[in-house]
């Protein structure tokens, strides 16, 4: 026996009310209590979005945030059974609908991307960590990169400046690498440029040592400058665990 259309309609109206707050009479429903469901559900969704996008929440006016959450939850059909993954759908929804707030705040799409990726990298499933040794010779040994990373391309420096301080003149091309420290699980952000991207890609694909990496840096600078810049980057990456260590 299939669910009767009338039963489906009652459930659909109930669910639609919870998503939009617009009530259409349903037989037997206590009207004074059904609002509790809308409130409980709205709070769950709102809390989840606020905790994923704290900087966006701080940036927007209260009215802008509330309208956004309300519009998103009532117009969009949330697909993820896992609540922690649902906020990604807000970012996608705003892109797909070319949301007006993306025009009000021209850097907002970058900010949402950065905030979502922090959650995604923090939560993502573990990747196999290759064996490595902490101590090594910078000039002779190959480096082992942390596989739990992601590189984002941004138009505004949302990873460098407070969102409220970003101005149109900041528009440009920026890259940020997010990686998860395997011991603590914390996500670290590293502002990077072209040679670093190439370096990270090379290390992700093949075992490479100082001289291999220097070739990349020399495309952008003199040998002397490249050597200094590479040494600085490698030291910093080893410290932040973006590079885990040296191959055995």
């Amino acid at each position: 026996m299939q669910l009767l259309d009338s039963t489906y309609q009652h459930q659909s109206k109930f669910a639609q009310f919870c998503r939009s707050g617009e009530y259409v009479a349903i037989p037997g429903v206590k009207e004074k209590n059904i609002g509790r469901y809308r409130k409980l559900i709205y709070n769950i969704v709102d809390d989840s979005l606020r905790s994923t996008y704290p900087l966006t929440y701080d940036l927007l006016e209260d009215q802008e945030w509330e309208s956004l959450v309300d519009e998103f939850f009532s117009s969009h059909r949330c697909q993820s059974p896992m609540l922690w993954q649902m906020p990604k759908e807000l970012m996608d929804y705003m892109q797909e609908t070319d949301h007006k707030l993306l025009h009000t705040y021209e850097f907002l799409s970058d900010l949402l991307l950065l905030e979502w990726y922090e959650v995604e990298i923090y939560m993502m499933e573990d990747k196999a960590i290759p064996t490595f040794k902490i101590e090594g010779n910078m000039l002779r040994d190959s480096f082992v990169i942390n596989p739990e990373l992601s590189i984002l391309s941004l138009t505004y420096p949302v990873h460098l400046k407070n969102a409220s301080k970003i101005i149109s003149e900041d528009k440009g091309q920026y890259f940020v690498c997010l990686h998860r420290e395997s011991e603590t699980g914390k996500v670290q952000f590293t502002d990077i440029k072209y040679p670093h991207i190439e370096l990270l890609e090379k290390l992700s694909n093949e075992e490479s040592g100082f001289d291999d990496l220097l070739e990349i840096f020399q495309k952008y600078a003199t040998k002397e400058e490249a050597t200094i810049a590479l040494s600085q980057f490698l030291n910093s990456a080893l410290k932040s665990k973006l590079i885990l260590g040296f191959s055995n």
Binding site: T7, I41, M86
Partner: peptide, 14 residues
């Protein structure tokens, strides 16, 4: 879940 939309709370069945 209803009409292909998750609601993240428990609603009563008729």
């Amino acid at each position: 879940k209803c009409d292909n939309a998750h609601l993240y709370d428990l609603l009563p069945i008729p």
